[in-house]
Design a protein around this nucleic acid. Sequence first.
DNA 1: ACCATTTGACCATA
DNA 2: TATGGTCAAATGGT
Length: 336
Amino acid sequence: MTLGLQGDELLAQLRDLLLPSPTTPTPFKVESGGTGHPPASRDGRRRRRRGSKRDREDSKSSYNGEQQHEEPPRHACKTSFSQLLPHIHADGLIALGAAACSSRRKKQRQKKISSTSSLVTSVPDFDGYQWRKYGQKQIDGAMYARSYYRCTRSAEQGCPAKRTVQRNHDGGDGDGTPPKYTVVYMGEHTCTANDSMEAPVILETAAVVAPVTSNSIKRPQSHDGTAPTTSAGSCSITSTSSSTATGIESPAISDITYWSSSSSGGYAVDDYCRLFGVHDSWAPPATAAASSLREMEDFTGPIRSPVHIAAADGWTIDHFLLQLASNDQPVSHFSF
DNA sequence: ACCATTTGACCATA
DNA sequence: TATGGTCAAATGGT
C-alpha cells in the first residue's frame, strides 16, 4: 500500500486526530457500573414474533432488504443503556425522560445530539470504531432502511457515540459502482480504547470488487453480498460540528470533501481520503438535512473513517494502518 | 449454548 | 398524528 508519502508525518497527524477524541476528557463521568439491573419487565413489550425473515412487507416499518452491516461483538449490550444515559451529559447528548430503570416504558431516550457529521462512503463499516447495531428502520421516503449503531463501548464506558448508516439511492445498482452509504455520526467518542482490537484504528481497506473477506474490525458474519463493507473505497464527508476544532489542515482535500459546521464536535472522517487517495463524490442525501455544506478547508477532529487503498488483483486487503496512537508504535500493518 | 442479527413494539418529538 | 429513534425478544448461525 502506500502510505509512503510523508509517512511518519501523516501518521503523526492521524494520531493526533484520532486520539483526542476517544481519550478526550469529558465533562461528565460515566459510570460503567450499574449495568446489572434486573430485566425488569422483560416482556413489557414484545408480544408476537414476526416470521423469521420478514413477514410484513406492508408494514410501514423496517427491513428493506438492504443495509446489513456487520455488527461488532456486543459487549454489555444487553445491559440497558438507559442506565447509563442519565449520567451522560456530553456535549452531544441530552438526556430526556426520567429515570429509566424498571420498566421499559420508562426507557430513557436521548436526543438532540448536537455534534453530528455525515459522510458518504461505500464502506461504512470500517471507520476505526466498533459499532453495535441496535436498530434498523425504514425511513419515510428513503429507498433503503437506516441502520442505527452505537459504540460498543457505550455500555462499558458510556460512550455516547452513535451513527446511522443508510444506503443512498444511487450507486451500487448494478452499474458497477459500489453502493454508497450515508453515514451520520452523532456524538463524540469518549471511550478509551484499552483493548488492542478495539483501539481506534485507521483502517485501510483495499478493495476491488470482490466480495471481500475483509476482516478488519468486524465480524464477517453479515458480510454477504449486501454488506457494503468492501468495495472500492471512497468517501466524502459532511459534518455539522465545530467544537474541538484543533484539527490539522488538509489542504488537499477540498475537492472531495465537504462539510458543514454548525454545532460542536467534529469528525474528520476525511483526511484519510486525502491521505490515501480515496475519492468519492459527495452525494447529498436527498433528505439529508445537512445544512450548509461548504468545502472543507480546515479540517478538524479525529479521523474516523476507513482508509481504502486500491488493491491490485482484485483482492481486498485490510490494513490496520494505525493503532492506538498512544504507543509510539506508529503503524501496524496487517494484511489479510 | 452462545452470540450476533433481525425486526416489531414502544416512545419522544415534530 | 406521523415519523424517527430505541429497545429487546426471538431467531439463526457458529
